[in-house]
Design a protein around this nucleic acid. Structure first.
Lengths: 222, 222
DNA sequence: CTGTTCATCTCGTAA
DNA sequence: TTACGAGGTGAACAG
């Protein structure tokens, strides 16, 4: 990792064209060759960046240091440093990586082992049930037939569209039809709820922690 | 802006839960109070972060510095620094900001002034034509009636769904119906193309630079 | 404020 | 390699 605090101008030509006027910024060069340019606000997003793999070529023109960063896709990032105020290097080494808990996959897992919470007499047929246009999160069955369940952390309109496409595909199969739809999320947006109801898709909000408690009452990863 | 290179462990509890084992990392505190934690790879994304506005509370426990970062939503980021290897501060000042050229809005603008490239005899009725569920990018007209045009930089399946919803809404209006659909993008994914054709939506790939050339042959912002 | 949509989205994963 | 969906998506803009 190399950190340079510098007064610079930046031009990017690639997926779009962009320009940063002369100002003081922080440039971060990482061990994988990637580069990012940060202003003094916004935690998340750099002003400009180049993802690895990329090549940094340094030249000097009229007392100005110029970095030309290019990648295989033909994108080009040119940083002209008018003045360098500070510079540090440090070897951080490999990172053991981020452990996550509470993403959609976990919710799907928990629901798969507790399909009875989705509806009376529900039985799991398969997780990730394949269709020609992609897998349905859960395929369940009760006394009236099959139910395709779409699981989301946050239920929005896109999820309802996705489930609708799956239902269309599944209902082409005479072995399965009629297949009902069910939309399950920790939180369902009003728009999504309205669209789902309009399409006769049942909606259910579930609580992740509560669901986890059913499997393992004292579970808490961290 | 404050930069700290430190051996640390990090815990986040908020929209999900996550944990970073002890390792050397770079912590960036920006002038707006936001904070991000970087490993030595990936240009774009920090391992962990907290967006402004947030509050940083520093304590010391057994020779370890602990930063508790919280926000109004009740999210909590706890950084425990076991060792600090380097530290810098710098006032960067306000950034003049990034100027962009080539985003979807520009493409829509160009197409609006050249609707004849979309189809013979096409005339523009309105950009951002309002419907109950949101504005259609372009509403055009030819001798056979109205055409709703959805403009995307990259045409994917979501865009086709969006256009379909607009068409459904527009065709409820007896003054307009029948409204045909048209999907225009610099690049259209095969899946989107298939779905669009299946719904009788015409697809067109356009070249941004070529289109811009029609308006202003020597135009080139940077 | 909410809701909607774009993004140089990034990033993982599975076919 | 490509395609697809999730994301602590973030960020901008309209209502």
């Amino acid at each position: 990792m190399r950190i340079v605090i510098t007064t610079c101008t930046v031009n990017y030509q690639g997926r779009l064209a962009s320009h940063l006027p002369k100002a003081q910024r922080l440039i971060m060069v990482k061990a994988d060759g990637s580069i990012s340019i940060h202003a003094d606000d916004r935690a998340y997003k750099p002003l400009n960046w180049m993802n690895p793999p990329c090549l940094i070529h340094e030249t000097t023109e009229n007392d100005e240091i110029v970095w030309s960063v290019s990648n295989k896709q033909g994108e080009l990032l040119v940083i002209t440093m008018h003045e360098v105020h500070h510079e540090v290097s440090a070897e951080l080494g490999d990172d053991p990586g981020l452990q996550k808990d509470g993403v959609e996959a976990h919710l799907q897992e928990l629901l798969a082992t507790h399909v009875e919470t989705l509806g009376e007499g529900f039985e799991l047929v398969r997780r990730e049930f394949p269709t020609p246009i992609g897998p349905v999160d859960l395929l369940c069955k009760d006394k009236d037939g099959y139910i395709a369940v779409e699981v989301k952390r946050r239920g929005e309109i896109d999820g309802v569209e996705q489930l609708t496409r799956y239902l269309d595909a599944l209902n082409l199969d005479p072995q399965l039809t009629p297949v009902r739809g069910m939309f399950v999320a920790q939180e369902i947006k009003p728009q999504a709820l309205t669209l789902a109801e309009h399409r006769n898709i049942r909606c259910l909000s579930v609580d992740y922690d509560e669901l986890r408690g059913m499997t393992d009452p004292q579970a808490r990863l961290f």
